[in-house]
Design a protein around this nucleic acid. Structure first.
Ligand SMILES: [Mn+2]
Ligand SMILES: [Mn+2]
Ligand SMILES: [Zn+2]
Ligand SMILES: [Zn+2]
Lengths: 120, 120
DNA sequence: ATATTAAATAAGAATCATTACTATCTTATA
DNA sequence: TATAAGATAGTAATGATTCTTATTTAATAT
């Protein structure tokens, strides 16, 4: 993978802000530093970084990307829209073990709770 | 809510097949019985039925709808694409109780495991 | 049964996220 | 520095979903 300016900048954006960002948000941030960058390039780099396990994609209405870290679960507030990382790993592991016993092999997961957050 | 032909047919499609179907699949099935039906109508009716808790929408790459039944979890095979309903309700309830203790109110959730199914 | 009317529909345009395409450019390497 | 495979910009294309508006229809009152 070639170390292009575009790739370096997008990686830096994720290092600077460890939140859940859309492709378009990344594009706007990258565009400030590299006005010639194209949205298609942002999408291609995001896809590549997901394939390489550098990023993770969260499928909500619009795709959101975040740095790949220890596995976690998401809570999205229906009022303010904030996305939080929440605990629950033991319970999920328990489900995955039961699936394994049944002969299924889990490689990925998407666990999202929706509701009203503490502040709202 | 008016009992239109379009609404009745779409409900019957879900009664006949209790699987996870896309808007377009519904449209094609409905179209056989009512060639004049439009895709926009299918979408509007699906949205209405979700609002009324008759259907549930599963957000994967493409939206998939199924009859609303007891809460459950999904497993999607990366190879054959089959979507299965799997158990794990106790563990999820445990997570939700912890969220409640922290002051969050859960109203909806989306729990999907991806991997390879028993047959593949 | 018929007229009335508010709600639902068909058809197609519009929107929005994402991907495909291709000529041009750039990083890595010799 | 010359070269070539890989990456990019710009833009067209795609696919799912929603919007718009003129027309139709189910429910209700007569
Ligand atoms: Mn997260
Ligand atoms: Mn299901
Ligand atoms: Zn909130
Ligand atoms: Zn399978």
């Amino acid at each position: 993978m070639r170390q292009t300016n575009q790739l370096i900048i997008i990686k830096e954006i994720f290092q600077k802000y460890e939140g859940h960002q859309t492709a378009n948000e990344i594009y706007k941030k990258a565009h400030r530093r590299l006005p010639a960058i194209s949205l298609a390039t942002v999408y291609r780099i995001l896809n590549t970084l997901v394939t390489e396990n550098y990023l993770e994609r969260l499928n909500i209405e619009e795709g959101r990307y975040e740095l790949k870290k220890e596995k976690h679960i998401h809570f999205i507030c229906n009022k303010c829209g904030k996305i939080q990382n929440i605990p629950g790993e033991e319970q999920i592991k328990s489900i995955e073990e039961n699936l394994k016993k049944k002969g299924m092999k889990v490689s990925k997961r998407e666990i999202i709770f929706y509701g009203i957050c503490k502040e709202c």
